[in-house]
Structures are given as C-alpha cells and as structure tokens.
Simulated assay, not measured.
Amino acid sequence: MMPTAQMSSRGGPWRLYVALMGATQWPDFRWERPAPVPTIAERRAALAALGYELIPGSEWSWIEDTTTYGDDASPVLLIAAVDVRESTGGAS
C-alpha cells in the first residue's frame, strides 16, 4: 500500500503529513502562515523536504468534515489527500 500525504487546517496554519501504516510518528511539515491554501508548488516542495513525491498522474482530492463530530453547525475542517512515494532522488 502506498503512503498518502494529507493536508489540513482548522483555520490556522496548514499542516501536511505523510500517513504511514504501522508508524508511531508521521513525517510532517507546517506552514507558518494561516490561509490561503498552499499552492501545488509549495506542497510539492514540502513533500520533497520530507523525502516524498507525488506518484505520477495522482491528483489532490479534497473533502470537508466538521470539527465537532455530528454537529453540522461546527466549523468546517478541510482535508486534502494524494498518493505519494519515497522520492527517487532522496530528500532535498
């Protein structure tokens, strides 16, 4: 199973992390500034810094959730995901 990179924000700075099955800690990157959403180039650079790259042909998908489970009046949490692999050139 390929790892998945996910990115989320609860209204503050965005956080990108690579979800690794069986790992106790996941590599992550945090942008210092709150919104706007990091560009695709910024996300690619963050993944490279973590030693990962997009799988060719993969695209970011977006879903939304509520910050309080089952409460549709609570603030929205945006989550993006994409399939990744370890960088073929190593971490940059």
Rank of each mutant, 00 (worst) to 15 (best):
M1N: 08
M1P: 05
M2R: 11
Q6M: 15
M7R: 00
S8A: 11
S8L: 10
R10H: 08
R10Q: 09
G11I: 01
G11F: 00
G12R: 11
P13H: 15
W14E: 00
W14A: 01
R15F: 05
R15V: 14
L16I: 11
V18N: 01
A19H: 10
A19Y: 12
A19I: 04
L20K: 06
L20F: 07
M21G: 09
G22L: 06
A23P: 01
A23N: 06
A23W: 04
T24A: 07
Q25M: 08
W26Y: 08
W26G: 05
P27E: 02
D28P: 00
D28N: 12
D28I: 01
F29A: 01
R33N: 10
P34Q: 10
P36Q: 08
V37C: 15
V37L: 15
V37A: 07
P38L: 02
T39G: 13
I40P: 02
A41W: 05
E42C: 03
A45H: 03
A45R: 03
A46Q: 01
A46Y: 00
L47E: 00
A48K: 02
A48E: 03
A49I: 03
A49H: 05
A49T: 07
L50S: 01
L50F: 03
L50H: 00
L50A: 03
G51A: 06
Y52L: 04
E53L: 06
L54W: 13
L54F: 09
I55S: 04
P56Y: 08
P56S: 13
G57A: 10
S58G: 08
E59L: 13
W62E: 14
W62A: 12
I63D: 14
I63T: 13
I63A: 15
E64N: 14
T66Y: 15
T66P: 01
T66A: 10
Y69M: 09
Y69Q: 08
G70W: 10
G70H: 05
G70D: 07
D71T: 04
D71G: 07
D72P: 12
D72I: 11
A73S: 15
A73D: 15
S74C: 04
S74M: 09
P75K: 09
V76C: 06
V76A: 11
L77D: 03
L78R: 13
I79C: 12
A80L: 13
A81E: 13
V82N: 03
V82D: 01
V82E: 02
D83P: 02
D83T: 13
D83H: 13
V84H: 00
V84E: 01
V84M: 01
E86V: 10
E86R: 10
S87W: 03
S87E: 04
S87V: 08
T88R: 11
A91W: 06
